[in-house]
C-alpha cells in the first residue's frame, strides 16, 4: 500500500517534471502576450517528431533533444511572427486570438497526421536499467528529466530576476504601454520570450516521447490539458506556481493510475483545476477582459 503509493508518487514526480517543463514555457508566453495559445500542444508534437527524425538520421538522442527544442522555438517564432502578427494588425481581440491558435493547432496536427501517415512511431532511446531506491524504481533518464525541470526553473527564474532582459520582460508583462514609453523594445522582448517558450515546449515534447516511448500526431494535443491546467493553477506568468501545480497534478494523476483508475487518471489531475476554479474565482476572473494583446 505505502510502497505502491511511493512508487506512484515517484512516477508522479517524473510526469510532473514533464508537465513542468511545458507549463513553464506556456506560462511565460501566456503571462506576457495574454494569448491562450492552444497550438502549444502541436508545437510539442513538432518537437517530438524532430527528435524522432534526428534519431532516424542517426544523431545522438541528446542532440535530438536539443534539436527538438530548437524546432519548437523556430515553430513558435514562425507562428507568433508569421501568423499571430497578421491578426494583431487587424486588431483581432484577445479572445479571437485564442481561436486563431486553435485553427493553427488543427492545421499542424492534421498536417502532421497526413505527413506521418497517421501512424505511431516508437521512440526508444536513452533507456537504461532502472535504479532501485526501496519501492521506487526510476530509470536514469527519468532522473535526468526531473533534474532538467529543476535546472530550467532555477535558470529561468534567475534570468527573470537578475538580467536586464528579465526585468524588461516583467515590466512588459505588467504594463506594456508604460514599458514601451520607458524605452523597452517590447517587440524584442516578445520575440525572445516566444523563443524561450517555444524551446521549452519542443524540449517538453521530446522528454514526453522519451518517457512514453512513442510519438504520433496527437501526442501534444492529449498532453495540452495538463499544461493549461498547470499554468492556470499556478497563476499565469508564475514559473514557480506552474512547477508546484505540475507536481500536484503529476502526483495525483499517477497515484490515481497506480490504484487502478487508469481511465480516470487525467480526470483526477484535471479535477484539481476545477476545484481551484471553484474555490479561487478571484484568481481567474476579474478585469481580465481588459488585458491587452502584446505581440
Amino acid at each position: 500500500m505505502l510502497s505502491q503509493l511511493l512508487a506512484s508518487a515517484a512516477d508522479g514526480i517524473v510526469l510532473a517534471a514533464i508537465i513542468a517543463v511545458a507549463a513553464m514555457g506556456f506560462t511565460l508566453q501566456f503571462g506576457l502576450t495574454n494569448v491562450l495559445n492552444l497550438s502549444f500542444g502541436s508545437v510539442m508534437t513538432i518537437g517530438g517528431f524532430t527528435a524522432y527524425l534526428a534519431n532516424v538520421a542517426g544523431l545522438s538522442a541528446w542532440l535530438g533533444m536539443l534539436l527538438g527544442g530548437v524546432a519548437g522555438g523556430l515553430a513558435t517564432i514562425a507562428l507568433g511572427r508569421g501568423v499571430l502578427r497578421l491578426y494583431a494588425r487587424r486588431r483581432t481581440q484577445l479572445f479571437e486570438m485564442m481561436m486563431v491558435t486553435l485553427g493553427l493547432s488543427l492545421v499542424i496536427d492534421y498536417g502532421l497526421q497526413s505527413i506521418s501517415q497517421n501512424a505511431i512511431y516508437g521512440y526508444t532511446v536513452l533507456q537504461a536499467s532502472p535504479v532501485r531506491l526501496g519501492p521506487i524504481v526510476l530509470t536514469p533518464i527519468q532522473l535526468f528529466i526531473v533534474l532538467l525541470a529543476i535546472v530550467i526553473l532555477v535558470v529561468v527564474e534567475a534570468a527573470l530576476k537578475f538580467t536586464k532582459l528579465g526585468k524588461a520582460l516583467r515590466a512588459t508583462a505588467v504594463e506594456p504601454s508604460l514599458a514601451r514609453s520607458c524605452g523597452i523594445q517590447t517587440g524584442r522582448v516578445v520575440l525572445i520570450t516566444w523563443t524561450i517558450s517555444g524551446f521549452l515546449c519542443g524540449l517538453a515534447g521530446v522528454v514526453y516521447i522519451i518517457s512514453t516511448q512513442s510519438v504520433d500526431y496527437s501526442t501534444g494535443e492529449l498532453f495540452l490539458p495538463l499544461i493549461i491546467a498547470a499554468a492556470i493553477l499556478g497563476g499565469v506568468g508564475s514559473l514557480r506556481g506552474a512547477v508546484v501545480a505540475a507536481v500536484v497534478m503529476g502526483i495525483v494523476t499517477e497515484v490515481v493510475a497506480g490504484f487502478g483508475g487508469a481511465a480516470y487518471s487525467t480526470v483526477a489531475g484535471f479535477a484539481i483545476l476545477v476545484v481551484v476554479l471553484l474555490l479561487r474565482p478571484g484568481s481567474v476572473s476579474g478585469g481580465a477582459e481588459d488585458r491587452q494583446l502584446v505581440l
Partner: peptide, 26 residues
C-alpha cells in the same frame, strides 16, 4: 462560472479531450 472567456473556452476544450480519453479507456 464567472470566469475569463478564454479560460472558459479552454476548460470546455479540455473537457472534450478528457471525455474522449475516459470513454476510450473505460
Amino acid at each position: 462560472r464567472r470566469m475569463r472567456r478564454d479560460y472558459q473556452a479552454a476548460v470546455l476544450l479540455i473537457v472534450s479531450l478528457i471525455a474522449l480519453q475516459v470513454v476510450s479507456a473505460d
